[in-house]
Design a protein around this nucleic acid. Structure first.
Lengths: 238, 238
DNA sequence: CGCAGCGTTGACAACCTTCAAATTTGGTGG
DNA sequence: CCACCAAATTTGAAGGTTGTCAACGCTGCG
């Protein structure tokens, strides 16, 4: 089966049939987690490696004043904490946003996988580099763009990521978030997130309704958002 | 010789004498680079692994409007692009801020190092995880704190990092930046960076003068900035 | 001296937050 | 189907934070 994971990693690496079988076997035992459920909390010891198969999850950090900042959105095919075993404590939390199907892989299994297959190792490594690049882009977004362009840019990123995962439908992708949660991603107030969404819709750039984001004119959105997907390192054409 | 690099990595790993010798040998051939010099540019192919021995460098991204966002500050003992060989293009730029002494290590040397010494491998891995944690904290800073606390928090982070490197003097550390460059780190205008610095000084929290940052009362600064160094994963006491 | 770069200040405008309230939506039970 | 309720979204108004523009002062250096 071609899973979002395989689609994504195939951007970086040509897998052998063996590799594909290994990846498929690895992801056979899934469990379902409800929305808004904590997976692991800041301060906890790192647990198993998690892989999102379905739904939307996030990394976030809670602040003393009760607010939180989401620092990563995890879509199907994304790994969490692939590497974090080396640290003794989690420095951020991980939780679901929507209903999720998740695979939990014992750390030992990942390590032996790394010894067995160089191409899978390379692919996982690549994936963590892309995650880092995304994080840097979020920082640029927050630091140097105002809320409307920041949000538009974010939506462009997500469209690309969903496309790679094979989960976009044309210029539409699912985003099972409330505006409040979206505002935690953007680092703005809920009220302002709402106004920003409205202004983008009125400008004909994107709409976000009923858990879906749609681009009426993707090329224009890319241009307005100054979105250059290079940083996502999608080498394969689709 | 106990270099900033060794001091830093010793936070995570106990090195054997062999490891220490290897690290020392690796960093023997340095070259000096002037201030405000590009090391590698967005879009370039990844080059050798670079290690900052002296001075201050940064990762940054330039924007169409001519502004830039600095997404990482690199101090002595920090690696650049340890892992980036796997990508075909740089998605950000790297440049010096002050005069720097830099070591350039051929990628092959790093790879063989990784095969030779598990403890060094582990230490390098740990270092990249800390870099990621720092990046996440910058995003939280930018997303959920206003300029004054954001800046204070940043200074706290840098104090800790300079201490680990053995380059802090009490509650003071060097920061060879103009306010303009600092504003590129903070993601605010120069004018606002200036006002923020003044208000922090007037509040008796930090001063930034003549290229040095000084904390009159570090404990209070930590508290006000909501700074919890946990995310820097400094396991060793000092 | 004169210049250039950097730091500082004031005034005003734009962006964003907060608070409060109204409206809509979606789900539940009658 | 409707009433009801909780959650989510939307709107207005006021105030705080930050950006922009412009001017001025300081400092180091040729």
């Amino acid at each position: 089966m071609i899973t979002p994971l395989i689609r994504k990693l195939s951007q970086a690496v040509d897998f052998s049939d063996d590799d594909l079988a290994t990846l498929t076997r690895l992801t056979s035992r899934q469990r379902t987690v409800g929305p808004r459920t904590a997976l692991i909390h800041e301060g906890d010891r790192p647990g198993p490696v998690r892989l999102i198969m379905k739904g939307l999850a996030c990394r976030y950090q809670s602040l003393p004043d009760g607010s939180r900042q989401i620092v990563a959105l995890l879509i199907p095919g994304d790994f969490c904490d692939l590497h974090v075993a080396i640290l003794d404590r989690m420095d951020h939390s991980l939780g679901t946003l929507s209903n999720c199907d998740i695979v939990e892989i014992p750390r030992a299994a990942v390590l032996s996988l790394i010894e067995t297959s160089p191409s899978i190792t390379r692919a996982l490594w690549w994936a963590t580099l892309v995650d880092e690049a995304i994080l840097r882009n979020w920082l640029v977004n927050k630091g140097r763009r105002q809320a409307d362009l920041q949000l538009l840019n974010l939506f462009c990123e997500l469209l690309c990521r969903y496309e790679v995962a094979g989960l976009a439908q044309g210029d539409t992708f699912p985003l099972p978030l409330t505006q409040e949660e979206l505002s935690d991603v953007m680092g703005v107030s809920v009220v302002h997130a709402n106004r920003t969404l409205n202004s983008l819709r009125e400008a004909g750039l994107v709409t976000f309704e009923k858990g879906s984001v749609t681009f009426p004119d993707r090329a224009r959105a890319y241009e307005v958002a100054e979105f250059d997907p290079t940083y996502l390192h999608l080498t394969r054409r689709r």
